[in-house]
Simulated scan of single mutants.
Amino acid sequence: MNIEVFRDYCLSKKYATESFPFDKKTLVFKVAGKMFALLGLDQQPSTVNLKCDPEKSIELRVQYNDVIEGFHMNKKHWNTIIIEGDLPTHFIKELIDYSYNLVVNGLTKKTQSELGFI
């Protein structure tokens, strides 16, 4: 998956926004002000950070060489994914969905309701 496809898919998510809150090299995707993905624009090969359940994070790191501990993130809750590696596009999209859904499910019920998630 290339960075344009990654970006387009993240922005296709309901209420997803993008910004550069840290620097001009790290594109951050948020829903309701909460991060669900970070894309390093100057990384070769391209890498992204995605939120993940702690147990699932460990399983993914063991199973896939292109999934490692979250770089500059809480390694318990974030994985770094090499998107221009061997992982198929549909699997990377599943990981994006998982990260996005974790964030949405972590929003208050009031916010979820206001945004039409429940």
Rank of each mutant, 00 (worst) to 15 (best):
L39N: 04
L95C: 03
F20W: 13
N79I: 00
I3C: 09
I81Q: 04
L41G: 10
K93S: 10
N79M: 07
N79K: 06
W78C: 03
I81C: 07
V103W: 02
P21E: 08
V62M: 13
I58V: 14
G116A: 09
D86I: 08
K13P: 00
A32F: 02
E59I: 05
N74L: 08
K13N: 06
S46M: 09
C10L: 09
I3Y: 13
V28P: 01
Y9M: 11
I81M: 11
I83P: 00
L95A: 01
L27M: 14
L38A: 04
I3N: 12
D42P: 03
D23C: 12
N105V: 01
L87H: 11
K75R: 12
I83K: 04
N74I: 05
D42S: 15
W78K: 04
T47F: 04
L27R: 05
Y100I: 02
D8T: 06
T108W: 07
L87C: 09
K51G: 02
M35L: 09
N101L: 13
Y100D: 06
L41N: 13
P21N: 07
T80C: 08
Q43D: 15
D97S: 03
T80S: 14
I68H: 04
K14N: 13
F71Q: 15
D53P: 02
T80E: 08
G70V: 04
K93T: 06
I118K: 15
F6N: 01
S19V: 05
I83E: 05
P45Q: 15
K76T: 13
L60S: 09
M73K: 14
C10I: 04
V28K: 07
I3H: 10
